[in-house]
């Protein structure tokens, strides 16, 4: 990478219908985080607990697919406020594990989870207005907004994330190559 410029790039991250595994993997770049912080500053992210995306974000990193209305809202906020949007991990790329509910009707799933499963006798399907409504199907994020880059993996390794980010920060087209390119 070139020497740090005056202005640091503003990076926002979020986990939608994901497990935070990709964020954990991001932390697996370990002490390289310090090098990274010479070039970037974090905006909205689970790492900062900032709740809204600043309107001048350079990079948005999205983990997880879309399983409810709030996921769609957050994704659109990121798209609106980030110059470059990256889908990180299998769930953001193709729906991943949550999308494996897609061949079942949503009503059947809710019935089974809250009514007929053992241990939940007479349970009620939660309908608090605070809770975002689930979508009929789980969708990968590129089906809703334009995504500029994809970083597959479940999760992508710390090394893959580092290679991807350093390529991007250096103005190169990110290229993972054998060993870092994984869908699993």
């Amino acid at each position: 990478m070139d020497a740090p410029g005056k202005k640091k790039l503003k990076v926002a991250t979020t986990s939608l219908a994901g497990c935070f595994g990709c964020h954990m993997s991001f932390l697996d770049i370990d002490e390289r985080l310090f090098t990274l912080l010479d070039y970037i500053e974090f905006d909205r992210s689970p790492l900062t607990d900032i709740k809204e995306v600043s309107p001048d974000c350079d990079l948005g990193i999205i983990e997880g697919g879309l399983c409810n209305a709030e996921n769609v809202h957050v994704l659109r906020e990121f798209r609106k406020n980030c110059k470059v949007l990256v889908a990180i991990g299998a769930c953001a790329v193709n729906g991943g594990l949550p999308a494996q509910r897609n061949h079942l009707p949503l009503s059947t799933i809710l019935e089974e989870v809250y009514h007929t499963s053992p241990g939940l006798a007479n349970g009620l399907i939660p309908n608090d207005p605070e809770l975002p409504l689930p979508l009929n199907k789980v969708h990968p994020i590129h089906e809703v907004v334009k995504i500029d880059y994809f970083l597959p993996g479940c999760p992508p390794s710390g090394d893959a994330i580092w290679k991807f980010l350093t390529d991007l920060l250096a103005g190169r087209e990110p290229e993972l190559g054998h060993g870092l390119m994984h869908y699993d």
């Binding site: 889908a87 790329v93 193709n94 897609n102 590129h142 089906e143 597959p152 290229e175 390119m181 869908y183």
Partner: peptide, 20 residues
């Protein structure tokens, strides 16, 4: 999977069918 790696497939690009 290995062929998709070889071809540098970073995303599915199209909308998923999610067939049953």
């Amino acid at each position: 999977q290995a062929t998709a790696y070889h071809l540098g497939m970073m995303s599915p690009h199209f909308d998923h069918f999610f067939p049953n």
